[in-house]
Design a protein around this nucleic acid. Sequence first.
DNA 1: ATTGAAATTGAATATCGCTTTCAATTAGGA
DNA 2: TCCTAATTGAAAGCGATATTCAATTTCAAT
Lengths: 141, 141
Amino acid sequence: MKELLHAKGFKMTPQRELIFRTFFDMGRHVSADELSEKVRRKDRSIGHSTVWRTLKLICTVGLAQEVNIGDGITRYDRITRVPHGHLFCLECGEFVEFDAGDMISRLDKVASDSGFVPEGFKVEIQGYCKKCRQQSQESGR
Amino acid sequence: MKELLHAKGFKMTPQRELIFRTFFDMGRHVSADELSEKVRRKDRSIGHSTVWRTLKLICTVGLAQEVNIGDGITRYDRITRVPHGHLFCLECGEFVEFDAGDMISRLDKVASDSGFVPEGFKVEIQGYCKKCRQQSQESGR
DNA sequence: ATTGAAATTGAATATCGCTTTCAATTAGGA
DNA sequence: TCCTAATTGAAAGCGATATTCAATTTCAAT
Ligand SMILES: [Mn+2]
Ligand SMILES: [Mn+2]
Ligand SMILES: [Zn+2]
Ligand SMILES: [Zn+2]
């Protein structure tokens, strides 16, 4: 961890250590605010901007990436070996991940066919989960 | 057009007429600001908020949809019969569309397997276009 | 261990899409 | 024509993200 930062010219600090640990202990798709709140419950002296900057840093060193579902809130998702897509509910915000490995090869080809060097892929499905559909049905319409 | 609005309880106005026409005359992936600027070149009296709201309206009646690539700017894309994906350059912002029809059937299955009723799909590739790669190579690194 | 340049921090402030508010105007069915 | 609900434009508001800056801290080089 410390090595990874130093390799790219960044320094390790107590704040970063706590933020890193908290981030990786939390689930996936964490927003800056959510992380900030959790971090500051452990150490009230850590500033919001530091949490925010560290999240960017985690992306910069390649350990996470931003996920944007169009609700104006950026979430941060740990990068896994297997590329995955997101399925999320427009009503309750539930996230489901699914394996997108097979699609990536297709998309790779699409990119090179257009002369692009791909940097990242995004495969998303927006919809309504079973639970939300049942609830809206119960409450009429 | 007017009928489409009336069918959903909306009224037609001169402002909307101009905004609709301008939007559909412009290319794809238009941001609210871009449209607003173009509209107001034709009629300076039209307020920004009206352009805004009309863009939302166009989505509501099903003629366009929001496209969000994570740069904080919502773009509006006319809905075409064929579902398509987006390939865009992280450097210059160039957009390329590609046919994603075959992927949709796969995604449809993924959704139903999880008990979701899909409302929309997003297939995107971020990368660097040929032109930008050449330019950054010329200017060292 | 000491030093010092460069990175980092936290509070405050700025930014900037986007949204809401509200009084005045307008559309269009009755 | 009349009436009411929808619409408009200006201004103010909102909220996530970004930047500024003085004070502090890290860590490579002494
Ligand atoms: Mn994920
Ligand atoms: Mn498109
Ligand atoms: Zn749901
Ligand atoms: Zn480019």
